Amino acid sequence: MADTRILPNTPIEDSYETSPRTPPQSTMPRNSSLVQPSQKKKRKTKAYRVFRSVIRSFPIIAPSCKMGSIPIGLPEGYRGTSGTRVTGTLFGYRKGRVSLSMQESPRCLPSLVVELAMQTIVLQKEMSAGMVRIALECEKRLEKDKTWILDEALWTMYCNGKKCGYGVKREASEEDLNVMELLKAVSMGAGVLPGNSEVEGIDGELAYMRAYFERVVGSKDSETLYMLNPDGSNGPELSIFFVRV
């Protein structure tokens, strides 16, 4: 995440394929123009999901976390060709923990907000190295339990194979929604916003990075977000894995 202001890009509308889960009920701030997600529910067969997951990724060894292997990204010729794309925003105060917001589009209410076990300034340093792999793991449930992975409340978090604490799902706060409102016209980019936090005071700045993410649903126990860089860009690579192990 950069510490420079940017001019917002023109937002692009995208379809969003959601898993069968109940959308979060958030308290809307006054004068908010964010809208509810469309809540499209398209179920695909298990065989198709497995096949799609296999052709989109290939494994590397990650001995520091429980996962035996994690995909390292989308094939070079494949990027930007899938129809499942969401807006992801990483934001937070420098001395505070960074949060991840996932939206159907920049104009929609968040469908997921996760507070990660990492300070914003630490994530900025990791991103400057060029490649970040975040794994959010939880224990497997009974086979008959149909709870989807993004409906969990708590995950053990690893960053580039190192355990760093816990990721916590939470309802979108009024401050979260205000941030999404301010960034409604931004489709991709990074910068800072004026903040109002007990951590850094009213003069503190809130850093953010927004991008499109490719969303791969392997099963109810596995979902992955791959950050998509603009065509021709050599920006940092970021992948976020939600898995049961």
Rank of each mutant, 00 (worst) to 15 (best):
E175T: 12
M1R: 09
L150G: 01
L206A: 05
Q103Y: 04
T18L: 10
I55E: 03
V217L: 12
K144I: 00
S219N: 06
L90V: 06
L228I: 06
R215I: 03
F241H: 13
T120P: 03
I72W: 00
E115T: 12
F51N: 13
K41N: 05
I61S: 10
A172S: 10
S69D: 06
L182Q: 15
R97Y: 00
G130Y: 13
M118T: 12
Y93H: 14
Y226H: 13
I6H: 04
S64W: 15
L206V: 07
L116G: 02
Y93L: 02
P230T: 09
G73M: 12
I149C: 04
V86A: 02
P24M: 14
S33W: 12
I149A: 04
G68T: 10
V114E: 01
N160G: 04
K144E: 08
A135D: 08
G80A: 00
E181K: 13
L116S: 03
M28T: 05
R94E: 05
G68D: 07
V168C: 09
G191I: 09
L238E: 00
K42F: 11
C65F: 05
K40T: 09
S26L: 02
L177R: 13
L183R: 08
G68C: 06
E76L: 14
V186W: 15
I61H: 14
V179P: 06
S53F: 11
E237W: 11
L238N: 08
L228K: 15
Y166G: 00
S99H: 09
P71R: 09
N178G: 02
S57T: 14
E126Q: 13
S222Q: 00
G232D: 05
R210K: 15
R79L: 11
K44G: 02
T45F: 12
Y48T: 11
I121Y: 07
R56G: 12
R133C: 03
S53D: 07
L136F: 01
P194L: 08
L90E: 00
E181T: 09
S219P: 01
V54N: 06
A129T: 08
I55M: 12
P194T: 05
L142D: 08
V192R: 14
I72F: 11
L177F: 01
I202R: 14
V122F: 08
R215W: 10
L100S: 01
T18P: 08
E17M: 12
T4N: 14
P106T: 07
T156A: 08
R244M: 10
R210T: 05
V186D: 07
V86H: 03
A211G: 07
Q25G: 00
K163S: 10
V122N: 09
V217Q: 03
Y48F: 10
